[in-house]
């Protein structure tokens, strides 16, 4: 019963919206009250959108078993599947799929796109990738000093990995970055890099001396904070990504059949902007920690 009422409402609002749009189109030549006409046009567009959304949502919820309601099911660690007898997390498989995709894309770029790049006037995709690489170079040069040549590609790889894993969420899969094992692996690499470059720059004795800098009393604390670095990096990324995923899941489950048009708009923030910011922060923090170690 309620569905029929909703259908009627949506039909009425659609009709009004279309009539308003047609009226706005026909009265375009006679531009009398400019402000009023604009207002009417905006109102009719909103009415049309609302009517369409309500119509599709009602139809979908009528014919699908999906019910709107607050119920989310998620696990802290991802589901496992068994491949050749080994039990492997799904996110690991997804991240290997990302690597494969990057391999294919990279080969295609290397073989077919890069030779076509014009050396004088970059445009389109060339501009994007050039700006990305150049920005990474500049970032690395500022904080990694002498080692920017070795570390900038790694940071670039991290950015590629995180952005691709943010894209996997758009396909309805669980992003690798929203699994603690993946982020912890990245944190471990950062921890290794911090110590490797710190020791390479100052030697083992210099690194230990640098830890006990103001007074030897702070030595345990410094050790603790150093150990906390990978944990904090991993937990930060994991928490943010999982938070975004849960919010999106909540939105979808609350809307049920009406999840048309609204989740993509919210996804612009939670699935694209938020991961990009987190990528930036992860890379910047890694660079800052390494910079601290080598300075």
């Amino acid at each position: 019963m309620t569905q029929i009422i909703l259908l009627c409402i949506s039909a009425v609002s659609l009709c009004f919206g279309f009539i308003g749009l047609a009226f706005a189109k026909s009265s375009k030549t006679a531009n009398g009250d400019d402000k009023k006409a604009k207002k009417r046009k905006r109102l009719s567009i909103a009415l049309t959108l609302f009517g369409g959304w309500l119509l599709i949502g009602t139809l979908v919820s009528m014919f699908s078993a999906k019910k709107a309601g607050l119920k989310i099911e998620f696990a802290l660690f991802s589901d496992r599947i068994s491949i050749f007898g080994f039990s492997i997390a799904k996110t690991v498989v997804i991240s290997f799929c990302i690597t494969g995709t990057v391999l294919i894309l990279g080969t295609v770029f290397r073989l077919f796109v890069f030779p076509k790049f014009s050396p004088d006037d970059p445009k389109g995709f060339q501009n994007v990738i050039e700006i990305a690489v150049e920005a990474m170079e500049n970032f690395a040069k500022n904080s990694l000093l002498d080692y920017s040549g070795q570390l900038a590609p790694y940071m670039f790889t991290l950015a590629v990995y995180m952005i691709f894993s943010a894209f996997t969420e758009l396909f309805g899969l669980r992003a690798p970055t929203s699994d603690l094992t993946s982020t912890f692996a990245m944190g471990l690499i950062t921890f290794f890099l911090i110590n490797y470059y710190g020791i390479k720059k100052k030697g083992v004795a210099g690194r230990i001396k640098g830890m006990a800098k103001p007074t030897p009393l702070v030595f345990p604390m410094k050790i603790l904070s150093d150990v906390a670095v990978p944990v904090s990096l991993a937990c930060r990324l994991f928490g943010n990504m999982l938070g975004g995923m849960i919010v999106m899941d909540l939105l979808k489950s609350v809307l049920g059949g009406y999840a048309v048009g609204i989740p993509p708009v919210a996804g612009l923030y939670f699935n694209l902007f938020h991961p990009a910011i987190q990528t930036y922060i992860f890379i910047i923090l890694s660079m800052t920690f390494i910079n601290e170690a080598i300075e």
Binding site: L103, F109, V133, V160
Partner: peptide, 8 residues
């Protein structure tokens, strides 16, 4: 992959 195919 990224270093050899894209970055370099």
């Amino acid at each position: 992959i990224v270093k050899l195919l894209v970055y370099k």
